[in-house]
């Protein structure tokens, strides 16, 4: 053991430093190795909700809702969202005049445009009635089997929490919607499938080119859903592909995390309180321990 000790402190420090340097290199290595898909990015103007103090842009949420309603809702359900949610604080149609979203005329109007199934209490038959603000968004298909049958075998995922269920969140949704492009030569795409460099997947089996340079991304059953001019915005915003994608991504971000603004505001207050409390406690600590150290 003497030899170990005479080896000395320096040698040990060196050994430890080498291990640490090695582990850092490993970190960098795997970050490069990962990435079957391109890294998701925000729209150029960013998302108003990102950052510590970011809030939702209500006009954008309204436009996003329109994109969802006119395009996405044809195939994708949003079972966890009710009409009343649209009129809640920080929501797309919140109006300070109507603290109770069920009284919000815009929300009531939107709900009344839908029919939902119910049971006739007299006869027991399945009938439909006008939706109310407390109803969840009706789903486009009766069940997953029907959804698969209409979509080439793939069930369109529910969009209620899609931004939380995908790496990259709203940026991923934006990148995917704007990222469709023609597959590079040498990539075989099956019928009913579409290439997207942002969709996570492994294309090596469909790739006939250089095996060291398999294209990023994957294939999905959803055809490019948005195109310029597809949705007319009521506030005059130009209906480009990027604008539609950014707006619907913002709307889905809100839908997934409707309490995010309240959460961040509460967080600022909590941290401020803890900071104050820390100062007080630390001062007490210094006072109590004076002369004891």
């Amino acid at each position: 053991m003497k030899s170990l000790q005479t080896l000395g402190r320096k040698a040990w420090i060196k050994a430890a430093a080498t291990v640490m340097a090695a582990s850092l290199t490993l970190g960098a290595g795997s970050a490069l190795a990962a990435g079957g898909a391109l890294h998701a990015h925000e729209p150029k103007e960013g998302f108003s909700s990102s950052g510590v103090l970011g809030t939702y842009d209500q006009a954008q949420l309204q436009r996003g809702y329109k994109v969802y309603r006119e395009v996405c809702a044809a195939c994708h359900s949003m079972k966890l969202i009710s009409f009343r949610n649209l009129g809640e604080k920080d929501g797309p149609f919140y109006d300070p005049k109507y603290k109770n979203p069920n009284e919000n005329p815009v929300v009531k109007q939107i709900a009344s445009e839908f029919e939902v199934p119910t049971i006739d209490s007299e006869t027991g038959d399945v009938i439909t009635r006008k939706a109310t603000t407390s109803d969840a968004f009706p789903s486009p298909f009766a069940n997953p089997e029907a959804a698969a049958a209409s979509n080439g075998g793939a069930v369109p995922p529910d969009l209620s929490v899609i931004t939380k269920a995908r790496h990259g969140g709203a940026s991923y949704v934006y990148s995917l919607l704007t990222g469709y492009k023609a597959p590079p030569a040498g990539l075989k795409i099956a019928e009913g499938q579409h290439y997207n460099p942002y969709f996570p997947g492994d294309l090596s089996s469909a790739w006939s080119g250089d095996h060291k340079h398999v294209p990023a991304g994957g294939v999905l059953a959803m055809a490019p859903p948005l195109s310029a001019g597809q949705v007319t915005f009521d506030d005059g915003r130009e209906s480009t592909l990027s604008n539609q994608a950014a707006d619907v991504a913002a709307f889905l971000e809100w839908a997934g995390e409707p309490k995010a603004v309240l959460r961040k505001k509460t967080g600022v207050a909590v941290l401020a309180y803890l900071l104050l409390f820390f100062g007080l406690t630390y001062a007490s600590y210094r006072m109590v321990w004076r002369g004891k150290h």
């Binding site: 510590v52 509460t266 967080g267 600022v268 909590v270 803890l274």
Partner: peptide
């Protein structure tokens, strides 16, 4: 504990 709760809160709220 207060320092720990600060770290805790950063995760919970942000």
């Amino acid at each position: 504990i207060i320092v720990f709760l600060f770290l805790f809160s950063v995760f919970v709220f942000f």
